[in-house]
Amino acid sequence: MTAPKHILIVEDEVPMAEALDFKLKQAGFATTVANDGAVAIEAVRSTAFDLILLDLILPKVDGFGVLEEIRKRKIKAPVLILSNLSQQDDINRALGMGAKDFLVKTNIQISDFIERVKKELGA
């Protein structure tokens, strides 16, 4: 039996982080939650994740800062942006910095989002 895929959840909104943590664990993934950008950077430095879910508006270091770090460290794990920012230049910027996809929280139900993650990890 292989080890479960390890997902980093970067989300400052605690109920959301908890919902994601709950659903992903339910789906059989291992999770680590980071509630701000600084913790997230710390996490990606120490741990190799299979997938990173990244919010953009975060305390301390914002999502773009985290993306910058990920790019710097040449981390291969796909990054899905899950944010309520929806302006085109934010989207372009994030995708330009290496994010795999950009999903708007209000536009997607959590169960649909879990399906998207599963698909990404080939589960």
């Binding site: 109920p15 959301m16 919902a19 709950f22 659903k23 920012l85 929280k105 209000t106 959590i110």
Partner: peptide, 25 residues
């Protein structure tokens, strides 16, 4: 931009939990 973020965050949170309930999580 900020307003949309701030308004939508609680709305999406509520949505997600309702969705979880409906999925009998």
């Amino acid at each position: 931009s900020v307003a949309s973020h701030q308004l939508r965050t609680p709305l999406s949170t509520a949505g997600w939990y309702a969705d979880m309930l409906l999925h009998e999580d």
